[in-house]
């Protein structure tokens, strides 16, 4: 397709520049599609309701979905390696309820929060070891982790535990406001997770190996890359993110509840896919996943503005997921033919 050597030095024509842009940036196309959908939804919402694009609505978009952004970042790592992690929702519930329970029993915040995040990482490690060492399909391995974490959440407490720790509550209630806009510490944590993950994926050997493994695990191994370590680490990162999300969600809802996050793994996967990450692995960006979460959040807001049933959220997400998967399928089919 793009065999024509690009003459370096000579001034390229517009057409050559367009070709070069396409050859270099093709993998951003799905992300821009997600941005496009987001913009269209904003525009439609504003045109229809008139009071949609307000600083308050947009600020709450980040606040309401901070935990989901963090989960989507972890999921992106796993999906980029060609795997899947079904356990994120229940790990989030487990770490969340454990955090609430320990805090309610007077354990120091500085110990509790790192501890639950490490527990999340350990759940991820277990999944990763099952996948890598015992060659269990990622779907089944993370399924086992999902069961385990959900059950453990109920072991911690069968009912909701109210959160009274001032520090954790402050994560949610502190507002850096200005001109109607506001930012909470939870939102900052979510953004920071995205930024750190993007830097890791782009600027470290580990990050590039994540992409290489997803592109072709065999090639990556033949190139002498540390594929085993990278795959396990991807699940550890996902588990860590689920641990962080547990703290964020507890702060957000003001309580720990063992039934939190049922179906959240599906929302997360949907957001990641809508954000342009291919489920076959190797292509995608955490930035896209964040956009995917915003698409998800905006659908929710639109539906509540419409006063329609919240059940339309899942239906719309399902439909959007279908459209993206079919389009990806077409793209993959076309590129394998050329």
């Amino acid at each position: 397709m793009t065999d024509t050597p690009v003459a370096l030095g000579a001034r390229p024509s517009l057409r050559e520049r367009a070709d070069r842009f396409r050859a270099r940036r093709a993998s951003w196309i799905p992300v821009s599609a997600a941005v496009g959908i987001l913009v269209v939804m904003f525009a439609v919402g504003q045109a229809y309701f008139g009071n949609f694009l307000t600083p308050r609505v947009l600020s709450s978009l980040l606040l309401d979905n901070a935990y989901l952004i963090v989960l989507a970042v972890g999921m992106t790592f796993v999906i980029l390696t060609g795997g899947i992690d079904l356990s994120v929702g229940s790990v989030m519930a487990f770490t969340g309820i454990l955090c609430a329970r320990m805090l309610s029993e007077g354990a120091p915040t500085g110990v509790v929060i790192p501890l639950v995040i490490v527990l999340g990482a350990l759940m991820g490690l277990a999944t990763g070891v099952l996948v890598q060492v015992f060659e269990v399909q990622p779907f089944i391995a993370s399924l086992a982790a999902m069961f385990a974490a959900r059950g453990l959440a109920f072991v911690v407490s069968l009912s909701s535990i109210k959160l009274e720790d001032p520090f954790v509550l402050a994560l949610q209630s502190t507002r850096l406001a200005g001109g109607g806009w506001y930012l909470t510490p939870t939102g900052i944590i979510a953004i920071a997770t995205v930024v750190i993950a993007a830097l890791v994926l782009h600027f470290t050997r580990f990050g590039r190996t994540v992409y290489a493994v997803g592109g072709s695990e065999q090639s990556a191994r033949l190139m002498g890359l540390a594929t085993a370590r990278t795959k396990v680490l991807a699940y550890v990162i996902s588990g860590t993110c689920a641990g962080i999300a547990g703290v964020l969600f507890t702060a957000y809802s003001g309580a720990g509840y063992p039934l939190n996050g049922i179906g959240t793994e599906l929302d997360t996967i949907a957001a990641v896919v809508i954000g342009g990450t291919l489920l076959t692995g190797g292509t995608g960006y955490v930035l896209g996943s964040m956009i995917g979460v915003f698409v998800y959040g905006t659908i929710k807001v639109l539906i509540s503005f419409l006063g329609a049933e919240q059940s339309w959220t899942r239906i719309t997400i399902g439909a959007l997921l279908l459209v993206f998967v079919v389009v990806q399928r077409v793209i993959v089919a076309r590129s394998s033919r050329s």
Binding site: A270, S311, I315, L322
Partner: peptide, 22 residues
Amino acid sequence: LGIQPIIATLVLMLAGRGIALL
């Protein structure tokens, strides 16, 4: 359409309960 079974059925898994609620 040749979509991976996990993903193809995930669509309905997501949307199905919404439809039931409707």
